[in-house]
């Protein structure tokens, strides 16, 4: 059965979500793919509370946009998603830009809550579809949010993994280093290495990222799409819509 790249990524993310105990996931301004992954985990029966920041009707927060940060500060968010204009080999995130501060060469939108959420959430899954030496760099131009912290600085969690359009990396915070876990269909360890600006380790059992099953695809294109339509109409039209119309 054929599938869209976004569907493969949503399934890969969903496996990472359920791989660790997860009671509450918050999804922010990141790509809609993490939201699809969360819904997929929920629709498969995972007992997860899902807080979607940008949900217009039935938004989970009643104390305004500060509530997400307040409850994350308390440790009530087990998992958050972040991306980055640049991500480096120590899992530092750059959402500021390149060139002289504050991004005089290329300006990205800005750091959003990353400087707080990355350190206060129980863990973070990094997601960036573009996998190129331009995005995955040896050292970010500016640090919006640090991948690891010094002793004496309160930090609750780190990156669990980095999922891109080419592969899945795990992250080892003790060593500050990514480990290649699986490559997506059509990719190899060599093709990933050629497209990655930072050095990384390769897991002993590195394999291919599993393709979505028919059951997963049916959930994504049905109940998951229905949940996402209001918040991400453009995404739903592009990824799920063509099939619905066909």
């Amino acid at each position: 059965m054929s599938f869209a790249p976004e569907e493969l990524l949503a399934c890969a993310l969903a496996r990472l979500i359920v791989a660790r105990p997860t009671a509450h996931v918050a999804v922010g301004a990141a790509s809609p793919v993490p939201a699809a992954a969360c819904w997929l985990a929920v629709k498969r029966g995972a007992p997860i509370r899902l807080s979607l920041l940008h949900k217009r009707s039935g938004n989970p927060f009643t104390e305004g946009s500060r509530e997400l940060f307040d409850l994350t500060g308390q440790g009530r968010v087990d998992l958050f998603f972040l991306g980055g204009g640049q991500i480096d080999g120590q899992a530092n995130l750059n959402l500021i830009g390149t060139g002289e501060w504050p991004g005089r060469e290329v300006r990205f939108p800005g750091s959003f809550g990353s400087a707080f959420m990355y350190m206060m959430a129980g863990r973070t899954i990094l997601f960036r579809e573009e996998h190129s030496p331009r995005v995955l760099v040896e050292r970010v131009a500016h640090v919006s949010a640090p991948g690891v912290s010094e002793p004496g600085v309160f930090r609750r969690g780190h990156a669990q993994a980095l999922v891109t359009g080419k592969c899945v990396f795990a992250f080892d915070p003790a060593r500050g280093r990514f480990i290649l876990e699986s490559v997506h269909p059509g990719e190899t360890v060599e093709s990933v290495r050629a497209a990655t600006g930072f050095g990384f380790d390769v897991a002993a059992g590195v394999g291919e990222t599993p393709a979505p099953t028919e059951g997963e695809l049916a959930l994504l294109r049905g109940p998951v799409r229905d949940e996402m339509l209001e918040t991400y109409p453009e995404f739903c039209g592009r990824v799920f819509g063509r099939r619905a119309a066909a």
Partner: peptide
Amino acid sequence: PLRGIIGSDILAN
């Protein structure tokens, strides 16, 4: 006071 932020270049600026 606010936790987080330490290690971010936002703080340096």
